[in-house]
């Protein structure tokens, strides 16, 4: 019987794989292992302090379902993600199209649009708390100077408005990064295709809709997926600006995880909620990826 000839690479010989072992071990120790630990903690009643904890099976998951913790946090998280994805991508794409045109001083405009990204969440949250501050805040003062009653402006205290006020801050912060990615995508478009469009009589809108947007579909996929993940993981501005309040109006999934673990010391239950969030984020991301890739091909 003829022995099947093994394919041998001159560059990557079999023994070269041994050199990947340290990296794999690091990866296993610091990424895979902690994730498995999270699963393990989710079936315990660990309180984060006392190491004498018991295995409680799926009790944490059942309690999360029965108490409605999941159903409180998920709608807010979904609203957060949907508004963030839609608004930030539309504004960022519009900005990128504008800043890709031949206008004077576009370098300055690009820098200005990217600037908010350079600040940390804590700084931005703090600044915007003062922008939104009732009475003496920036918006209230502007309203007063325009003859409107600024004293009634109290967006973070409203049960219906607080979540959107926080999302607006997140959009303001992340728009720069999204815009830069769109800008990079727009610059990869072959100028001959634009010229061909012009010769065929395309107007500005047709140029965007029929040529530019389809050609940056891969960039749109990246930006939408990143925004979805960012939205589903929303935590920092909620923590800094409202602490989940007023009441529980801005409780997101990640903020609930934090609150369970570090305020209520229910580390096991918090781990269970993290597992649910982990699965949810992966499922949504995969679905979005499949959908967006399909759209890319169609475009």
């Amino acid at each position: 019987m003829k022995k099947k000839k093994k394919h041998k690479s001159l560059v990557m010989t079999n023994k070269m794989f041994w050199f990947a072992v340290p990296a794999f071990l690091m990866y296993f120790t610091f990424w895979i292992f902690p994730v498995f630990q999270l699963f393990r903690y989710s079936i315990t009643n660990f309180n984060g302090i006392n190491r004498n904890y018991d295995m409680v099976g799926f009790k944490n998951y059942i309690t999360l379902y029965k108490e409605g913790t999941l159903f409180h946090a998920i709608p807010n998280t979904i609203i957060y993600a949907v508004v963030l994805v839609a608004v930030s991508n539309i504004i960022a794409l519009a900005l990128a199209l504008l800043l890709n045109a031949n206008i004077k001083g576009k370098g300055i405009y690009r820098t200005a649009a990217y600037l908010p990204t350079l600040f940390s969440a804590i700084v931005i949250g703090f600044i915007w708390s003062y922008v939104y501050m009732p009475g003496n805040g920036m918006i209230a003062t502007i309203m007063d100077s325009l003859g409107m009653d600024g004293s009634k402006f109290n967006i973070l205290a409203g049960f219906k408005s607080a979540l959107y006020a926080i999302i607006a801050v997140d959009i303001w912060k992340c728009i720069g990064t999204t815009m830069i990615i769109y800008l990079a995508g727009l610059q990869t478009i072959d100028s001959s295709l634009i010229e061909a469009g012009k010769i065929d009589g395309c107007n500005g809108w047709q140029m965007i809709r029929l040529i530019k947007v389809p050609l940056i579909s891969a960039t749109i996929t990246i930006n939408v997926i990143l925004s979805v993940i960012n939205g589903l993981k929303a935590y920092d501005y909620v923590f800094i600006m409202t602490n989940g309040g007023p009441g529980k109006a801005t409780n997101t999934l990640m903020y609930s995880v934090y609150k369970l673990a570090f305020t209520e010391q229910l580390m096991g239950k918090s781990a269970a909620l993290s597992v649910v969030a982990f699965i949810l984020i992966i499922a949504v991301t995969i679905c979005m990826l499949i959908f967006m890739n399909k759209r890319e091909v169609e475009m």
Binding site: F159, G244, G245, P246, G247, K248, K259, T263, E264, Q265
Partner: peptide
């Protein structure tokens, strides 16, 4: 720990 947070959140809902 955590009981007072529930009280605060619900009281916030009431006054809001």
């Amino acid at each position: 720990a955590g009981t007072e947070n529930e009280m605060e959140a619900l009281f916030g809902e009431m006054i809001g």
